[in-house]
Design a protein around this nucleic acid. Structure first.
Lengths: 419, 419
DNA sequence: ATTGATTCGTCAAGCGACCGAATCAATAAC
DNA sequence: GTTATTGATTCGGTCGCTTGACGAATCAAT
């Protein structure tokens, strides 16, 4: 077989040449960092044992870390046979991260160090003027937190913002934020990045609440989780194969549009979302009114009356739980999660969650474990911190270039086929 | 700070010590293999250019490959200035893979080499006696294919079996195979592995059909795909974030149980699945009968009558399309795929797909691209080949140990919190 | 036919990074 | 005080990648 090279070289794209030389040390550093995260304070010798690397390598890595300010000495061992060991832990000077949960009512900001220690957390009502005023408010709180911890915004290296609405997974822009005025028309990420001086990433609040529960809440060590949030509206967070599901447009989990609870072709249902029209806060109030109830302003009151024994309110709540259970059954049939977490101001109510769980048993062919959110309103900001932390870690110790699976050849010819 | 080592060493698990030494060469080999996959035949010098590695390294790697029989020389360049180059390509001797699609009616077996070239494919009716008879049938076909290609079962190094029903993602066992008799009670994977002499992996047929469309069909280069298969039953395959969604129990995509098209609490609906009870083949026939139709044995006839202009059959088909569109809308709201592929003997019919697409526009807030399966009945076996191939490649060139993301610390103490 | 330009593949030297073994250091136990 | 044990460092040794140089092979031009 003889081939002219001329043709060959034309369609030859250069692969993204990954620097194979040096990857070895990067992996060693990564292992050392991981061990420091989970076992600090720890000595060099123990680091070597835990990572499986040699003591020499570990010594070199730790020397590097110390020079960079990533670790600090915290003392020596005592009381053991043999020479005392110098103990190391991750230094707060290695970098800080900021998590922000921007809700329609509440704004929460939290600060953590590179080891994931939450140093401070503060929340206050969201500035109702919206838009740039909210940006200013966030910057003020962030600065306050940093000062409180005898540091400054400069040490913050990664920031994640939780926001309602759809976040474009490619650009990071907020595309639908109905509950906060004047946010859709300004470049939130850009403005915040400029004000705070480090990269800001935006993510849907329900997705981050889910990641919060996975990090520190009720969904730890589970790789397949569905998070059903019922509050003002209804939303879903999906965590599958140990990764968040964003969807092509960042609209995964927008289950307000599920064709449940009414005619999905109807005008109001199509605009607001068929399911949301029924189980959203305004839907609950409306159904209560349509059922003959009166004197109710908010969905909360309906739930409180129901708990107090009001039969009319109870029937409205029951219907809400039924529809929620249908939505849950839908998700379970589709994604088969190991765990279903109920969250949101309504969904996390134990009485309500109980009703949903009971309905679900009758709807779903296989039982699924159900828990209610343990982080509550903090879930969003905790999730934001976890993502910010992960981004910081990846910045230092990422091996993203190596993880891409070997692509299969696209152009394949079928040589033979019989019958 | 002083710590006793004694306590520390107790809860210290040894990490799965990844062999960092040697990972470098493995990555080089991997790069070389990838370039060979996509650019063969290719010379050493060009391999060096494409991979970004040095000529020296590439020479060593190719020497290795040649010794192992992974590559073979296929000639020299001619007509260029300078010294002629020896050209290499992946050798079929490097290993073969087998894909098997075990359907209720049809059994398909295909053979491919390590480069993904499909060498032969054969299909015949599934042995209706089921059970071990089917195992024998598969073994016979596999042996036949191998012989036909002047080789033997020994060169096959990876086998994937597509089967209806739920496949346990951990054990690989078939847990529900209602359409093939006597398959649930025997250890299919174990028996086949023994008969064929290389590891067999089992996967749901719809999932593999989806992967087939992604490899060689209508969903190439798309990272978020939903595959809706409507035939005897209804099923869904989900491909999200460039990975297949199996679910905790392998039951992801079992949308026959979606609460659509009737009362999900009803006895028949609960047993068979609410949606499946309506749109499954038997459901279509039943609805046709209930609507006053007669003389119809199979769902296919209903669709053919509808296409021929029979108004009664048409209304049954319309309702089927409406329910299918509702299921699609459900998936789209939940997972937000980039592409929806319609497949299966019914779903791939252009007239039916058209109806579903039209319904869907009115149901979904954002438009989604819809295509019909281009591989048709071959999708399953092509997908099986793609997985078998990927497993073979990973066996040789996998870097799975390196890809795990850095886990965040679990035990975090919140030091301070205000307000 | 000779010469020059070009390209392929190999050799040699150097460097970064890993490891094991040996050695020094510091401490508890006896 | 001696011994056993453990921590940390130093010393070769090996692997693997890179660069630069060089011989071999070919085309093009004289």
């Amino acid at each position: 077989m003889i081939v002219r090279i001329g043709d060959e070289s034309n369609n030859m794209r250069a692969l993204p040449s990954l620097p194979i030389a040096g990857v070895s040390r990067q992996l060693s550093r990564r292992s050392a960092f991981e061990a420091l995260l989970h076992h600090s304070p720890i000595s060099r010798a123990h680091l070597a044992k835990v990572t499986g690397l040699s003591k020499q390598t570990m010594s070199e890595v730790i020397d590097d870390f110390e020079r960079q300010g990533l670790v600090r000495r915290v003392g020596r061992t005592r009381g053991n046979v043999g020479r005392t060991a110098v103990l190391y832990e991750l230094s707060p000077a290695g970098g800080h991260v900021l998590g922000i949960d921007l809700g329609a009512q509440q704004l929460t900001v939290a600060l953590a160090d590179i080891a994931g220690r939450v140093l401070a957390e503060v929340h206050e009502p969201t500035d109702s003027r919206g838009g740039t005023q909210v940006i200013e408010q966030i910057a003020r709180l962030a600065d306050h937190l940093a000062r409180e911890h005898h540091t400054h915004l400069g040490v913050i290296r990664s920031i994640v913002l939780a926001t309602p609405g759809v976040v474009n997974p490619r650009t990071g822009a907020i595309e639908m934020a109905p509950n906060i005025t004047g946010l859709a028309h300004i470049n939130v990420v850009g403005l915040l990045t400029e004000k705070l001086g480090s990269p800001v990433v935006c993510e849907n609040d329900i997705n981050l609440a889910l990641l919060g529960e996975i990090w520190h809440g009720c969904a730890q060590n589970v790789g397949n989780v569905a998070f059903l949030a019922l509050g003002t509206g209804i939303g879903l967070g999906l965590y599958i194969n140990d990764r968040l599901v964003r969807g092509e447009n960042g609209a995964a989990g927008e289950i307000g549009y599920l064709p449940i609870g009414g005619d999905p072709m109807q005008a109001e249902a199509r605009a607001q979302g068929c399911l949301e029209y029924q189980v959203g806060a305004s839907g609950v109030v409306r159904r209560h009114r349509e059922a003959g109830g009166s004197g109710v302003e908010s969905a909360r009151e309906v739930f409180e009356r129901a708990q107090a024994g009001d039969p009319l309110a109870a029937s409205v709540v029951d219907e809400t739980a039924r529809l929620t259970a249908l939505a849950a059954a839908t998700v379970i049939a589709t994604a088969d999660p190991k765990l279903l977490v109920l969250g949101g101001s309504v969904g996390a109510r134990p009485d309500f969650a109980d009703k949903v769980a009971r309905m679900l048993v009758q709807l779903s062919p296989r039982p699924v474990e159900i828990r209610t959110s343990t982080l509550g309103r903090r879930a969003g900001v905790v999730g934001a911190l976890s993502v910010a932390l992960r981004r910081l870690h990846d910045e230092f110790f990422g091996v993203a270039e190596l993880t891409a699976p070997l692509p299969l050849p696209q152009a394949a010819a079928r040589d033979t086929a019989r019958q």
